[in-house]
């Protein structure tokens, strides 16, 4: 068979180009579509509930006969679990990343990194059961007052869950620090520990902070784990020992329940989802900015 004429191959090229562009646009449309639905439904909700009550109210009882729509208990629950997760994930993640990038031999590195990736591939529902059925009973032996559902246990498990994420991004940032800076530090009589913590880590700081911010963003959006192990009781508290409800867990509760579409309770999930969306959006933007400035430093 002879090859196609130049004219037809040109048309083909153009069509392929269009097809790719369409795929790209599709993902954009979906994102915009979701945002539009989210905010439109939320707007209906705010037709009936005042924004001020929603944002500053400290009682969240949309499923009771006496309804209150103050989102703060959910926000506090979300922040509490995320904060516990970060207390676990950030120091541990940074230490592991320092070990991987500054201490581990190439061989250890090659075998350790895939193990961490495996940790990242465990379904979150498994982590949820692990928190509820293993970690909580264990913690109850140490902390007598701990209730069966609480923020502490899922917080700790979530910290372990996002650990690979923190390690991987921090390690990337640290290995991107030019070798010449390590040489300069050694040349000035630094020990290996000083090179790691006083030169490489500070030099990678914007990348490391970006890693942490992205990790927070994931923690805030995590659903299954908290829905299973944190309880379903929106409590305006920072006490990690009692049941709380996060924004995501509330959405699960309403979505799975028999709340009829179009009711105020139904619409409330769009309002809280909008808050979640804005929160993670801001966090992701912040992380991107930090990463850009990190890349700029060593361009």
């Amino acid at each position: 068979m002879t090859s196609a004429t130049p004219g037809s191959s040109h048309v083909k090229e153009q069509m392929v180009g269009w097809a790719f562009k369409l795929c790209g646009l599709l993902s954009l449309f979906v994102t915009v579509g979701i945002a539009v639905v989210l905010f439109a439904e939320a707007a209906h909700f705010f037709g009936e509930v005042s924004v001020v009550e929603f944002l500053f109210g400290t009682e969240w009882t949309p499923l009771f006969t006496e309804k209150h729509f103050g989102i703060l208990p959910l926000v506090l629950g979300t922040l509490l679990v995320s904060a516990i997760a970060m207390i676990v994930a950030i120091p541990l993640g940074i230490l592991i990343a320092v070990y991987l990038s500054e201490y581990a031999s190439a061989r250890v590195r090659r075998s350790l990194k895939p193990i961490l990736e495996i940790l990242a591939s465990i379904p979150t529902i498994v982590f949820g059961y692990f928190a509820l059925l293993s970690v909580t009973p264990f913690l109850q032996k140490i902390i007598p007052g701990l209730s069966g559902f609480n923020a502490l246990s899922p917080g700790i498990v979530m910290g372990i869950m996002i650990l690979p994420f923190v390690v991987s991004l921090t390690d990337d940032a640290m290995t991107a620090v030019p070798h010449s800076l390590r040489m300069a530090a050694y040349g000035l009589g630094s020990t290996r520990l000083q090179v790691a913590f006083r030169v490489v880590l500070p030099s990678a700081s914007s990348g490391v902070i970006a890693a942490c911010v992205l990790a927070v963003s994931r923690a805030v959006g995590e659903t299954m784990l908290v829905a299973i192990a944190a309880g379903m009781r929106p409590t305006f508290t920072l006490n990690p020992l009692v049941p709380v409800q996060t924004i995501t867990a509330y959405i699960v509760q309403v979505s799975l329940g028999d709340t009829p579409a179009g009711t105020l309770e139904y619409r409330s999930i769009f309002a809280v989802a909008s808050v979640l969306f804005v929160l993670t959006f801001i966090l992701n933007m912040l992380a991107q900015k930090l990463r850009a400035s990190f890349k700029f430093t060593y361009a």
Partner: peptide, 26 residues
């Protein structure tokens, strides 16, 4: 025995912190 390298390799810190580094680690 101090060393200066082929390509300038200052730390991404301030001028002051660069010079003070060796003293601070001591």
């Amino acid at each position: 025995i101090g060393m200066v390298f082929q390509k300038p390799n200052p730390f991404p810190f301030s001028i002051f912190d660069n010079v003070a580094y060796g003293l601070r680690i001591q």
